[in-house]
Design a binder for these strands. Structure first.
Lengths: 191, 191
DNA sequence: CAACGATATGTACACTCGTACACATGGGAT
DNA sequence: ATCCCATGTGTACGAGTGTACATATCGTTG
């Protein structure tokens, strides 16, 4: 029945995990078949067999490691679905600002996730994956506001995180809450 | 008098220009002493003499090529300095949305500038330069609103550009104008 | 004029990389 | 039982890289 193809994700999975650790430690520039093989403790041929090109490996790594922020938002904000009632706006803004701060607290993890995300700029193969997350996050936030506001919130958060990670500055939760609140409030009242 | 040290920026400048072209064509991954030397039509030793490490070259390239958007905003928005009077908000939002669209129209140039900008994530040497621009743009916009709103505008614009460039999607000027307008308007009325 | 040091150039070395390829192995299908 | 093929492994090769260094050039300084 159904042939039951031997599907042993263990080896493949171990290679992907190793790739993520390598990127976290040395960046994408340090990602080679050999460094991954050493990290995963498998022979060189094994990595080239499972991932013909490094882009394939990057796609797999991005797909696995990049779920971070989306997952956080989905788990903590999923309960309160439906369009926000009046008075909830500030809650949403405050909640998002708090979750973002918590996510950014693990600087190494955030950097890793963002580096993979940003790599899509020059690697068309990654664009689809990056776009998926963006859409998913936007859709998640649109449920509590509206599509237009959802997109704006994602853009603002993206810009804020980029700023913090790029300049190495501090994350100012109160300021982010205020900025997010402006978008949400104007989305409810004005056009 | 003053020793008048021989300062001949021609060679150095030519190498930087070549580096920018190389990054634009092949990305940072394709930037090597040799590719730059070939592009600039100078011997290999010349590039290693002027820039001991590739990071030095990247810093110089970022400093020169990354002025794009800031310059656009300064030139087109510098005239109307001072805090915005009521009624000017939409003008500012509309103007920014328009300028951003024009800047993004040259996709290759925007990608180049952003790739150098984003490279700061993993290269501490570039962070100072990236931070400079961010601050400069924020300060520029703060002049027409207030510091807090200025920062929010930059973050939102950064997020929007990132989204467009990363996913390869279209730029929706009307939507950006609306989102920017929300930030500006709320900055004037509420806290 | 003579000496010096900044600038410029060419070459060579050690190293790492992606890739190809021949070969081993073991479970499923026939 | 036998074959087949996905999976796994080791090795080798050519290309490309950063770097070091010996040497050449030439404006500036003394």
């Amino acid at each position: 029945m159904a042939a039951a193809r031997r599907y042993d994700p263990e080896r493949r999975r171990r290679i992907i995990d190793a790739a993520i650790r390598v990127v976290g430690r040395s960046g994408i520039a340090g990602l080679t078949h050999r460094t991954v093989a050493a990290e995963a403790d498998v022979p060189l041929g094994s990595t080239t067999y499972h991932f013909k090109t490094l882009d394939d490996l990057l796609v797999a790594a991005l797909r696995q490691a990049g779920q971070g922020f989306v997952t956080v938002v989905r788990e903590h904000g999923g309960a309160a679905a439906g369009p926000a009632a009046a008075g909830q706006e500030d809650d949403l803004a405050a909640e998002l600002a708090r979750l973002t701060g918590r996510w950014l607290a693990d600087r190494a993890g955030a950097e890793l996730e963002y580096e993979l995300y940003l790599a899509a700029l020059r690697r068309p193969a990654l664009r689809a994956v990056a776009a998926e997350w963006w859409e998913e996050l936007a859709e998640l936030l649109a449920r509590r506001t509206d599509p237009r506001t959802g997109r704006a919130l994602v853009a603002l958060l993206d810009g804020v995180c980029l700023h913090v990670l790029l300049t190495g500055g501090e994350y100012d939760e109160e300021y982010v809450r205020d900025a997010l609140g402006r978008l949400v409030r104007a989305g409810r009242s004005g056009r």
